[in-house]
Design a protein around this nucleic acid. Structure first.
Lengths: 108, 108
DNA sequence: ATCATATAAAACCATTTGGTTTCACTTTCT
DNA sequence: AGAAAGTGAAACCAAATGGTTTTATATGAT
């Protein structure tokens, strides 16, 4: 395993709120682990593990720069979220058949 | 707790592949638990638990009909997926700044 | 050379997750 | 009434998850 180890499901990678926040952070700019972990109440090690998970899902990439490891966002796999969403809510071909037929707001 | 118990995170609900399949099934039409579980290799009880999770996330709703419990899709919470996706890939205001600045295909 | 910084890797731990099996309950069918 | 069908709820279990702490390693600064 040269680099990112084995694939990881995008939906599962994104299931954790901390990991979603990390992605938002990296959307602004690339950051070293220490700076990322400064935004969270947990240990740096814990954040590093979250970054590994995100890397396995190809949602981030990292490079070594001196003694730092810099991570940056690689948002492409998020299109899977969009594709899933559109199975139910596509606006292209008007709405999905289920959505069309569903009554607006029957709360039970 | 009268009904759907406590809220459940949509991202987490959708993290499991079985649950995603269930949602696709229910997009076609509402179904009783037994019919849903017929599509999966696991026990009916396991599928019932997945349905409970989906219900806690408000992604499905259920009603009793005779001795059956019928579940149907309630896709509204999936908009959270879309909103998250669009933080990174919005096409409305052209692309997100990160996406704009990122070089196309630097593979490490 | 030495020391601080930044990370990596490993061991460990509690809780959650995704599954099972078993038992009880209600509804439908004969 | 009695049996079958469909579900609900509980107990149980192995594995995964999200944390921790500890130890080691490499880099940068003095």
């Amino acid at each position: 395993m040269l680099q990112t180890a084995q694939k990881r499901d995008v939906f599962q990678a994104v299931a954790d709120p901390t990991r979603r926040e990390i992605l938002k952070l990296l959307a602004e700019k690339e950051l070293p682990i220490s700076e990322i972990s400064a935004h969270f109440p947990m240990s740096r090690t814990a954040v590093a593990k979250h970054l590994q998970v995100l890397a396995e899902a190809e949602l981030v990439r990292g490079r070594k720069k001196g003694r730092e490891k810099i991570y940056w966002l690689h948002p492409e796999p998020l299109t899977e979220l969009r594709e899933f969403y559109e199975l139910f809510w596509s606006n292209k071909l008007s709405k999905h058949k289920y959505v069309l037929e569903s009554d607006p707001d029957n709360e039970y």
